[in-house]
């Protein structure tokens, strides 16, 4: 088992050579991609360097409060992302609140369960474990929730007549919205299902690759990856279900009407 190979900053500069070459091609071929390519690469560099710095500070501080603050910032960014990824959103506080709330509930529950039940760091909130795990859980739940909500809102808006046709035949709001609900849940679940199906065959998951690169036995790394995938699947599922049914509840009322007036956006 080999040890961990540290990289110098010069190694990074050398690794970026092909990316710079691509930028060169873009200029020569007038692809117009140069600007985007350079900005994205620079942005990524700055973001990651900063994150590395902040994580180091938090790890050194060893304080549950700083850890909690970092987690809160992650939730805020992920919540904003869910909001931004929807073409049509719930009006009022429901718009940013519902998606972020479902994600936060499902994500925290699963993260705490995984930390307390299986990973068992000491102390439980140890940022080296808690933050990366929470980040992965949030990232996947965020994708699922935003896809589920976006699909649901579009399906209900475009299928208003179909939903109302069922309502008019005396069906409940839950029955009448079932086709849209099914579509939304399917779309929210698809990324995690695809990830589980392709994992290990097409690509090695990032976390497992990282562990193997830092010298962990592959079989141990696989166990860790499986644990994470189960947690991710569980959190995504609960988040998508919660957000979809929450939004469905908000977009209908007790007189079994479809309330698209509580939705804004979309052209």
């Amino acid at each position: 088992m080999s040890g961990y190979q540290a990289l110098s900053y010069w190694d990074l500069v050398a690794a970026s050579v092909f990316l710079v070459l691509n930028a060169g091609f873009s200029i020569v071929l007038r692809l117009g991609l140069t600007r985007n390519l350079i900005i994205s690469a620079l942005r990524m560099t700055v973001q990651l360097l900063l994150v590395g710095l902040i994580l180091k500070l938090i790890f050194n501080a060893g304080s549950p409060w700083w850890t909690l603050l970092a987690a809160a910032v992650m939730v805020a960014f992920a919540g904003r992302e869910i909001w931004a990824r929807q073409e049509r959103r719930l009006k009022g506080l429901w718009g940013p609140g519902l998606g972020a709330g479902a994600m936060l509930l499902a994500g925290s529950l699963v993260t705490i369960y995984g930390l307390a039940g299986q990973i068992r760091p000491d102390p439980l909130w140890l940022p080296q474990y808690a933050l990366p795990l929470f980040g992965m859980v949030l990232g996947n739940t965020m994708t699922g929730v935003s896809l589920g909500l976006d699909t649901l809102h579009t399906a209900l808006t475009k299928g208003k007549r179909d939903v109302e046709a069922q309502l008019l035949l005396g069906r409940s709001r839950w029955e009448a919205t079932r086709p849209a609900t099914r579509q939304a849940l399917r779309s929210g679940f698809t990324p995690i299902i695809n990830a589980m199906a392709a994992t290990g065959v097409v690509s090695l998951p990032g976390m497992m690759t990282g562990q193997i690169l830092s010298g962990v036995d592959p079989q141990e790394a696989v166990k860790y990856q499986l644990l994470i995938m189960f947690l991710l699947g569980g959190a995504t599922g609960m988040g998508v279900l919660g957000a979809t049914f929450g939004s469905l509840w908000r977009l209908t009322d007790t007189r079994h009407r479809l309330r698209l007036d509580r939705l804004s956006g979309g052209k």
Partner: peptide
């Protein structure tokens, strides 16, 4: 009356109806 029951007894057929299947 619950809304579904009302709509079964007072049936509205819009100018263009929806088809969900």
């Amino acid at each position: 009356l619950p809304a579904p029951e009302w709509r079964r007894r007072v049936a509205y057929v819009p100018a263009e109806s929806g088809w969900w299947a």
